[in-house]
Design a protein around this nucleic acid. Structure first.
Length: 311
DNA sequence: GCCATTTGACCGCT
DNA sequence: AGCGGTCAAATGGC
């Protein structure tokens, strides 16, 4: 009895912790926006007094960063706040309605097939996942497992995957990835929304090594464009005669034709080896997010080393 | 005791 | 109304 009570207290503390985290998140957003406002004021001063030594470009970069961080934090906040503990079960009369227009914007990406790992029902794709649900799916023999990134609350990573055992081949799993990992803290990578992972029995032991390489080269990657990153990985993979993961970069910053050409050059060897169909890749390209970002456009201008001091 | 998983309930969408 | 995705209390393993 006392054990049960203490456990419930513990759970309540966990819920309180979640609430605290939400409040802290709000404060961080406000702080971020205030910083942005401050930078705008300084930029305006600069424009009024051209003699000022402060770099306009640096100020603009700061403003963009501030807005981007706010957007990231707010989108996370909306998703995690869908249902609070006190709105459920505690007081059934105080049920909170879900917002109707809040249609999930995650890009449904891909289905890929993997093989069962001995002694575990999980596929090791190199990331840490936490299961948060399981559902029997209408018309399917096997239930679907719902996983999210372990770092969802600590690093705000929104990556989610769905794993379902194939009806046709019980040793195979269909894995669907929604959203991408942002837990590496790399915003360039965070805009890489689409990824396909393939899991083969003989490749599993290579996965951690690849992640080690990825972490080590994080600083280098920050200064690389996505295409370069892909090609580097491709090169790495070719050297080892393996292929496991490739990422679709965000077309916001890419030329679409160039992107498709790249994929066409990229896919023939990999697809034949891995079993992924060209249709899948085409669909993935077609599914690429199209929402335009003013920020990325501005960033492009900045990247082109536009001389802002001339303003 | 802590943490991950399980599982029934909740809720939006079609 | 039924389905699929998510939540969170309960449970189990270490």
């Amino acid at each position: 009895m006392t054990k049960l009570i203490s456990h419930q207290i513990h759970q309540s503390f966990s819920n309180m912790k979640m609430k605290e985290e939400t409040l802290m998140e709000e404060k961080r957003v406000i702080k971020e926006l205030k910083q942005g406002r401050e930078l705008v004021n300084r930029l305006m001063n600069n424009l009024k007094n051209p003699s000022s030594k402060e770099s306009n470009m640096r100020l603009i970069s700061g403003i963009l960063r501030s807005y981007e961080n706010s957007i990231v934090m707010m989108s996370l906040d909306q998703k995690t706040r869908k249902r609070s503990p006190e709105t459920k079960r505690m007081d059934p009369s105080n049920k909170k309605k879900r917002r109707t227009s809040e249609k999930k914007t995650s890009e449904k990406v891909k289905v890929c097939v993997g093989r069962e790992q001995e002694g575990t029902s999980q596929l090791d794709d190199g990331f840490c996942w936490r299961k948060y649900g399981q559902k029997d799916i209408h018309g399917s023999k096997n239930p679907r497992g719902y996983y999210r990134c372990t770092h969802r609350f600590t690093r705000g990573c929104l990556a989610v995957k769905q794993v379902q055992k194939s009806d046709a081949d019980s040793s195979c799993y269909e894995v669907k990835y929604l959203e991408s990992h942002t837990c590496n803290g790399n915003f360039l990578l965070s805009t890489t929304k689409h990824s396909v992972s393939l899991f083969k029995e003989e490749e599993r032991n290579i996965v951690p090594k690849l992640h080690h390489v990825r972490e080590q080269s994080e600083d280098i990657i920050k200064h690389m464009k996505s295409e370069e990153l892909m090609l580097s990985l491709d090169d790495l993979e070719n050297k080892k005669k393996i292929f496991r993961t490739f990422s679709f970069s965000n077309p916001e910053t890419e030329n679409t034709t160039g992107w498709k050409n790249l994929m066409e050059n990229f896919s023939p060897t990999t697809t034949s080896e891995s079993g992924i169909t060209n249709e899948l890749i085409s669909a993935s390209v077609a599914n690429s997010p199209t929402d335009d970002s003013c920020f990325s456009s501005l960033k492009n201008i900045l990247d082109l080393s536009y001389d802002w001091s001339l303003m």
